[in-house]
Amino acid sequence: MSTSAVNTDIRLVVLDMAGTTVADDGLVERAFQAASDALGVEAGSPEHQRMLEHVRATMGESKISVFRHLFGAEERAQQANVAFEAAYHDLVDAGHCEALPGAAEAIAELRAQGRKVVLTTGFSRSTQDQILKALGWQEIADLTLCPADAGRGRPYPDLALTALLRTETDSVRQMAVAGDTGYDMLTGVRAGAAVVAGVLTGAHDAERLRADGATHVLASIAELPAVLAQ
């Protein structure tokens, strides 16, 4: 864990979902396989491998933005996104969706400390809502946001700043942003968050998280309440 000083007046905590508070367990890659199949990309081909590497590198980014990069034309990107979401929804419906250990307790503790908690995602609203329903998390946070709610997804600051505006938080320096990807870190940095915490339960390692601006690197989100309470 980083020993960086913590602003003791953190009033808003913006948390990523998949890989940070919700276990991914390869679901994104499995759903991407369905999307690439729908677009006629042969599994195991050099093109497929190149696309999969891009998906891994851009974990945390808005999924439609990823598909626009991979497939170019808007119609093809939308087709891939529809196939991705359908596959992801099927995986969630089949029971392949669970909270990371200590995540629900951490969210409850953060709120008990008097901080507002906002859950954010790179998924669409329908996918986000399905995950929240599967976990019974519809009321766990003060607010939930997807890219469509904010204008742009990660790595832009829009999700974090929208969380700040909607919770009527006074200053970006009263905000902490936490996630498992470099894109989460960039979002926090660009939004001016006082704490940008990377967790090692998801897509990217400590080196990538620090390179993209993490002020703290934690084993999991379960450590965050204690860090902010210091």
Rank of each mutant, 00 (worst) to 15 (best):
S2D: 11
V6W: 10
V14F: 08
V22Y: 06
V22P: 05
D24Y: 03
D25W: 04
D25P: 00
A31V: 02
A34S: 06
A38S: 11
E42Y: 07
P46F: 10
L52G: 10
F67I: 01
R68A: 07
F71A: 09
F71H: 12
A73H: 14
E75P: 11
A80S: 03
V92P: 05
H96T: 05
E98A: 14
A103D: 08
E105M: 12
A106V: 01
L110M: 14
L110G: 13
V118A: 03
V118G: 06
L119C: 09
T121N: 11
G122S: 06
D129H: 09
W137T: 13
L143S: 12
T144A: 15
L145A: 15
C146Y: 05
G151I: 03
Y156N: 03
P157I: 05
A163P: 09
L165V: 14
R166H: 13
T167D: 06
T169D: 09
T169C: 13
V177G: 01
A178W: 08
G179T: 02
T181C: 15
T181H: 11
M185L: 03
L186Y: 03
T187G: 00
G188N: 02
A193I: 00
V196L: 00
L200A: 02
T201D: 11
G202E: 10
D205A: 00
A211P: 04
H216M: 04
V217Y: 03
L218R: 00
A219P: 00
I221Y: 11
I221W: 05
A222R: 14
A222H: 04
L228H: 07
L228Q: 09
